[in-house]
Amino acid sequence: MKDLSPDQIARKSWMGLMAKAPKGQVAQLLDAATDRPEFTWLRAPEIGSVMVQGRAGGQGAPFNVGEITITRCALSLPCGTVGHAYIQGRSKPCAEASALVDALMLTEAADSIRDNVLTPLQETQTKARDTRAAKAAATKVDFFTMTRGDD
């Protein structure tokens, strides 16, 4: 894997966050944060699939497990900034909102969008993940020795 620049790492992070967001959440946060800018479609939202690969033995040669549904689109703001979205599931409105956030994160609005859209998204996902991890931890077995038969 080639090394990414800090800007690419940041973009990879927010695009991944939006790809996994619960349906409707990106649009809701975006609309609460700002009026939507005008834009033109470079690629109107389209629904498709991606073939997901696993590895034999968890680590060996790749094989195809099955597909997931993905919605993607690309748009440009009047200033020429291009936003992309690849999100899980089949929601064109979610893809549109995600591509707008992606584009706005490349403009002067970035700080405001980060605070009002990305940070809450991150908090929701971290909380959901931590809750599941805490429930899993509660089912972790604590073995204790009752008797030992070798003396």
């Binding site: 498709g48 699939s49 991606v50 073939m51 997901v52 690969q53 696993g54 993905i70």
Partner: peptide, 9 residues
């Protein structure tokens, strides 16, 4: 569905 591509493993 159109196939957009393959994932990384």
């Amino acid at each position: 569905l159109p196939r957009f591509g393959d994932s990384l493993p």
